[in-house]
């Protein structure tokens, strides 16, 4: 009974999360949805007498793989969301047909199949205990496959390093070079922080200089643009003007790209 309730709850959640992952425009949301599905699956593994797999699922998938996804998403650009216009004619329609058809066929097949009463893992585990019998299988019968996977992991790690490695074509600039470049540039000092002497300490609030003028460069350009787009401008016209100005700089830069 407990398993049935768990199943139904988690099944609904996981299917919904999966659909959300597919249909959400933003990749970060998709990643979070996938994490949800994986957690649900981990619980379902645990329910099905597979606690080891449940742990591995959480550690490897939710912990490592999903973090990797998020890292790469950050690397590639969080804000680059998919456009909703489909470029391939009929792709969505036929994809839906194929997916629904495939699911219908699989479900039909499973529905037609007649299963005996579940055998349960008690006999397979025996007196050795769950982890011991799992280890027994892994290190005896499947030891060769296990060793192969270790080789695979090493190869994958090496491959990832080789792929991600960027060849340096120029001499690495020394600290001296960097300092000289900074002083030769427009601004030798760091940018002012936002809202330091202001009435508000929000990150999108420009700082005021000691003479009361607005320090425009204290606001992040992206945040400024976000504020303009979302109409989150402060009441003070002087500050609002500065934020608009800052957002315009960002827009111009975007255009020039």
């Amino acid at each position: 009974m407990g398993e049935t309730i768990t199943f139904w709850v988690l099944a609904v959640v996981s299917v919904g999360a999966a659909l959300g992952m597919v249909f959400n425009r933003k990749a970060v949301y998709s990643a979070l949805m996938l994490g949800t599905v994986m957690l649900c699956l981990a619980v379902l593994y645990a329910v099905q007498d597979a606690p080891f797999l449940a742990a591995v699922q959480i550690i490897v998938y939710t912990g490592a793989v999903m973090m990797l996804f998020l890292f790469v998403l950050m690397l590639v650009g969080v804000d680059s969301s998919d456009s909703l216009v489909e470029t391939l004619r009929g792709q969505r329609f036929w994809a839906a047909i194929a997916a629904v058809g495939f699911a219908a066929l699989v479900i039909l097949a499973i529905g037609n199949a007649v299963f005996a009463k579940e055998a349960g893992l008690a006999s397979a585990i025996g007196q050795a205990g769950y982890i011991r019998s799992l280890a027994l299988l892994l290190f005896t019968k499947y030891v060769f496959a296990f060793e192969i996977t270790s080789a695979l992991l090493i190869t994958a790690a090496l491959g990832a390093m080789v792929l991600a490695h960027r060849e340096r074509l120029t001499v690495r600039p020394s600290q001296k070079d960097l300092a000289r470049a900074r002083f030769l540039g427009e601004r030798p000092s760091p940018l002012p922080g936002p809202g330091t002497y202001a009435r508000s300490n929000a990150i999108d609030m420009p700082a005021l200089l000691p003479d009361g003028s607005v320090a425009e460069s204290s606001v992040n350009r992206y945040i400024a643009r976000f504020d303009v787009e979302q109409d989150h401008l402060p009441a003070d016209p002087k500050l609002a003007e500065a934020i608009k100005h800052r957002a315009a700089v960002e827009s111009a830069e975007e255009e020039s790209k």
């Binding site: 099905q48 496959a145 996977t149």
Partner: peptide
């Protein structure tokens, strides 16, 4: 669980390992 056989879990484990490797290279 249906068949009372731990090998299904072992295979699932291997799938996870391979998937991890695949994700690393794919990304």
């Amino acid at each position: 669980r249906q068949n009372g056989n731990l090998e299904g879990q072992i295979i699932a484990f291997f799938v996870m390992v391979v998937a991890a490797a695949e994700v690393v290279v794919g990304l």
